[in-house]
Amino acid sequence: MSNAADEATVLERIERVRAHGDKLKDEFVTLAHGAGGKASAQLVEQVFVAEYGNDTLNEMTDAGVMGLAALAAAAGTSLSGGEQLAFSTDSYVVNPIFFPGGSIGDLAVNGTVNDLSVSGAVPYGISAAFVIEEGLEIDVLRRVVADMHRAADRAGVKIVTGDTKVVAKGAADKLFITTAGVGIVPASVALRAGAVSVGDAILVSGPIADHGMAVMLARGDLALAAPIETDSKPVNGLTRALLEAAPQTRWMRDATRGGLGTVLNELAKTSGKGVAVYEEKLVVREMTRGACDILGIDPLYVANEGMFVAVVPADEAEAALSAVKALPGGEEAALVGKIVAEPASAVVMVTGFGGTRMVDMLVGDPLPRIC
Rank of each mutant, 00 (worst) to 15 (best):
V144W: 10
M358C: 00
A146E: 13
K281P: 00
H211T: 13
V263I: 09
P368K: 14
L264S: 07
S345K: 15
L295A: 07
K158Y: 07
Y52M: 08
M349I: 12
A75W: 13
L24H: 11
V160H: 06
V47P: 09
I339R: 13
G125D: 09
K158I: 05
V277K: 12
L79Q: 05
T89H: 10
V215D: 07
Y124N: 06
G102N: 08
V93H: 13
G274S: 14
V235H: 01
E15N: 15
Y124E: 02
A193Q: 04
N95F: 06
A4V: 02
G170F: 01
M349L: 15
L222Q: 11
P123C: 06
A193Y: 02
L68M: 14
V167T: 07
S103V: 01
F176H: 10
V167I: 04
V94M: 02
L57S: 01
G162M: 08
V198N: 10
G296R: 15
L282V: 01
Y124F: 12
F130Q: 03
H149Y: 11
V166R: 14
T270Y: 01
R240T: 07
T230A: 14
T30K: 13
V160Y: 05
E134C: 08
L116E: 04
A152K: 14
D90Q: 15
S117C: 01
Y301I: 01
A41E: 11
A41K: 15
G206N: 04
A218N: 03
L295Y: 01
F353Y: 05
D163E: 12
L264N: 07
L203H: 05
